[in-house]
């Protein structure tokens, strides 16, 4: 099934799926302006919400333990040409998962990959990076700059 998509490596797919999962649906709609034209051609798995158990490690580096669960919505679609796309997104927005799955399928086709990467994925990634940097700059403004006071009698 994925022969047509032979060119997209797992790493590339993993990368755009991560961007789509972490984006807000509204942001995807902003960049993928033709989203309204796409509806799942064939559901291999209709969007449904489930839980992912999040694990931590004791002490940050030790044995894993179960911290708690988070909501995740997933689905799988097959395009008319047979390519299968998967969507895994944070939260309970089914449409978001559907967009992620369709885009995953479209991105696996070499003829439209580049265009979608440029128009949708990279801008989404840039927006995420921008938000991250902004948050980090705010945090950086609260960094303590220690200085040592010089006692009066020692001052010249």
């Amino acid at each position: 099934m994925q022969n047509i998509s032979g060119e997209a490596t797992q790493q590339e797919r993993s990368s755009w799926m991560g961007v789509l999962a972490r984006s807000r649906r509204q942001d995807i709609e902003d960049f993928w302006t033709e989203h309204g034209d796409y509806f799942a051609v064939e559901w291999l798995r209709k969007p449904h919400t489930g839980l992912v158990m999040v694990r931590g490690r004791a002490g940050g580096t030790g044995n894993p333990f179960n911290l708690g669960e988070m909501t995740v919505t997933r689905c799988a679609v097959r395009l008319a040409n047979g390519i299968v796309g998967h969507g895994y997104v944070q939260g309970r927005d089914r449409r978001h998962a559907e967009f992620a799955a369709i885009l995953d399928a479209l991105l696996q086709q070499s003829d439209c990959r580049k265009d979608l990467l440029v128009r949708v994925i990279e801008p989404l990634r840039a927006r995420q990076a921008e938000l991250r940097v902004e948050g980090s700059r705010k945090a950086a403004s609260t960094k303590v700059e220690f200085f040592t006071l010089v006692r009066g009698e020692n001052a010249v």
């Binding site: 839980l51 992912v52 999040v54 931590g56 995740v72």
Partner: peptide
């Protein structure tokens, strides 16, 4: 809700 998966342990660094 069904359980879909278990995450890799998070890396706090």
């Amino acid at each position: 809700l069904p359980r879909i998966a278990v995450s890799k342990p998070i890396d706090t660094t």
